[in-house]
């Protein structure tokens, strides 16, 4: 495990710079800011506010803000440019010419991206959930914290793969994937939505946060929730993560990356 330790230490030294800490704070502040605005600027229509199921509203809001947006954004920023960063900084050659250097580099980057996004998400969640002022806030926190871990784990693998396939425009392709596949395809009631992370996360959210019968019967979600108990969904997420990570490794090993500076013959 020595190479993995070295890679994690190397990545941490990059993450613990002033610039990256500011980004971490911005990321953690995002759900706090949005939930704060919702709390302190209530609905203008009192009737609508009275009819609102506040547990349903707050649990969905926090779910969308933390596991879906904060986690995805966090790993997008750190795992997406995994290869391009090394190519731009010309450090790829050092890592790639070590025995299994590419393997440990990707794994180290994955672990640090996961930790970076998860800590930001859970920190943001811990404050944001307080704004909900719900009796069920602990249940919401537990559900969303667990989902944040799973979301960061899965999205990091997806974005790492995208960053390996498209090192030149990794961030752009990650955003496109997040919007198209996770935002649209995951809601399509067809077999294809099973390959999306969001499909499983949403199902787990409904099972864990137990936001009430009204959620389960929302027309938009009727066909886009998976069947089966929570551990099956987690197994799916673990399997998807393993497949994405393994594919990223295969792609990174098979591709012939050259940085601009060493692209001469």
């Amino acid at each position: 495990m020595t190479p993995l330790q070295a890679m994690i230490r190397f990545e941490l030294s990059r993450v613990l710079t002033a610039g990256r800490i500011v980004w971490w704070l911005i990321l953690a502040s995002f759900p706090i800011l949005i939930t704060g605005l919702i709390r302190f600027f209530p609905m203008s229509d009192p009737a609508a506010a009275r009819n609102l199921d506040t547990h349903v509203f707050w649990s969905w809001t926090i779910y969308l803000l933390v596991p879906c947006i904060t986690c995805a954004l966090g790993v997008l920023l750190s795992a997406g440019p995994a290869i391009s960063t090394e190519l731009e900084q010309r450090s790829w050659v050092y890592l790639a010419t070590r025995p299994n250097g590419i393997f440990w580099m990707l794994l180290g980057k994955y672990v640090v991206a996961f930790c970076w996004a998860t800590t930001a998400a859970v920190a943001g969640l811990s404050v944001a959930v307080l704004f909900s002022m719900q009796e069920t806030l602990f249940r919401i926190w537990m559900a969303c914290a667990g989902l944040s871990v799973l979301a960061a784990m899965s999205y990091a693998a997806v974005f790492l793969l995208i960053g390996t396939i498209f090192p030149q425009r990794s961030m752009l392709f990650c955003v496109v994937w997040a919007g198209f596949a996770e935002g649209i395809i995951s809601l399509i009631p067809a077999v294809i939505n099973r390959i999306t992370v969001q499909y499983r996360l949403r199902t787990l959210f409904v099972q864990w946060a137990r936001p009430g019968g009204s959620i389960d019967t929302l027309p938009i979600l009727g066909e886009s929730l998976a069947e089966g108990p929570w551990y099956i969904q987690i197994l799916w997420l673990l399997s998807l993560t393993a497949v994405f990570l393994a594919t990223a490794q295969v792609v990174a090993h098979r591709r012939e990356f050259t940085s601009a500076a060493e692209s001469d013959v």
Binding site: R14, Q89, S91, A261
Partner: peptide
């Protein structure tokens, strides 16, 4: 190349 591991 003038390459090195940044930050170390």
């Amino acid at each position: 190349d003038d390459c090195y591991l940044h930050g170390l």
